[in-house]
Design a protein around this nucleic acid. Structure first.
Length: 276
DNA sequence: GTGTATGTTACCCC
DNA sequence: TGGGGTAACATACA
């Protein structure tokens, strides 16, 4: 599913394909994707030109030359596609942007969970969902100290805390399991009980894993492809996610799968021991 | 038909 | 109150 590395890969693909294109028309086939008034959304984007696609955590930021930004979250299965004919889109494409070069940018979302919201570019950081995000990996703001403070402030399980976008943003279920394995931390360990060394290992592991995943173009587990239609390659480097029943790559103990914070959670019962 | 999958928000409850 | 748990969103697939 799209977590930070997948969204970053989509962003890069979009920037190669649609920069400088003007929106000439928009077809909205499923209203609930759009946050706010659908007609206003259309009116404000017609004749606007796409200047640059940015990103904050898992949010794509389509910046237009008229001072507006479209905040787009892919949630579980959202994806963007560029096609030369509308008939090239299937029934799961709910929003179609007509571009000035004659091509079409489609938003496909089987589950319809994704959302798009149009705001003034100057106000993007004031939008609640963006404003409350914690620092993201690979930025100067994501420090050992910031992670330590986020973990120390709660008795929630460390896994739930890593998934909490206010502590560190951009991680989802796959990378949360991966970094816990890297740092040898049990997913159900209360966040405020981690040792200094474990927090350091988590901080390093998050940065390194996210960087490797971006370099690999993200992880394709179920359906993820980037804006150019390519799969990611990081699934071949996963250490625990989806490996239940298989031997741990460090110690050969069989990887287990349990439920933590309502999510499927994979860990090595030998490397990742619950400490009391 | 049933259970499971994932991200985020809403909401109930102790 | 904070926070834990879970439903809801909508669909595909084993």
């Amino acid at each position: 599913m799209p977590e930070l590395p997948e969204v970053e890969t989509v962003r890069r693909g979009l920037n190669k394909m649609i920069i400088g294109q003007k929106i000439t028309a928009i077809d909205i086939l499923y209203d609930k994707i759009i946050v706010g008034d659908v007609d206003t959304f259309k009116e404000q984007l017609i004749d606007a030109t796409i200047a640059y696609v940015g990103r904050r955590a898992k949010y794509l930021l389509f910046n237009f030359d008229n001072g507006l930004t479209m905040i787009s979250h892919l949630r579980m299965e959202g994806k963007y596609q560029v096609r030369s004919k509308i008939s090239d889109f299937d029934k799961h494409v709910h929003i179609i942007f007509h571009l000035s070069n004659g091509e079409y940018l489609g938003y496909r979302d089987v589950r319809k969970f994704g959302r798009m919201q149009l705001v003034d570019t100057n106000d993007v950081t004031k939008v609640k969902s963006i404003a409350l995000l914690g620092p993201e990996p690979l930025t100067p703001e994501f420090t050992y100290q910031s992670l330590l403070e986020g973990l120390k402030s709660t008795r929630k399980t460390v896994k739930a805390t890593l998934l909490d976008q206010h502590v560190v943003s951009g991680l989802g279920n796959i990378y949360a399991d991966e970094v816990l394995w890297l740092a040898k931390v049990h997913p159900e360990q209360p966040a405020n009980e981690l040792t200094t060394q474990q927090v350091k290992d988590l901080h390093n592991g998050i940065n390194e894993d996210i960087k490797k995943a971006i370099d690999a173009g993200g992880t394709t587990i179920r359906s993820y492809v980037d804006a150019t239609g390519h799969s990611g390659e990081f699934q071949f480097q996963l250490n625990v996610y989806g490996r239940q029943g298989k031997p741990c790559k460090r110690c050969e103990t069989i990887i287990e799968k349990i439920k933590v914070a309502g999510r499927g959670t994979h860990f090595c019962p030998h490397c990742q021991v619950l400490q009391s």
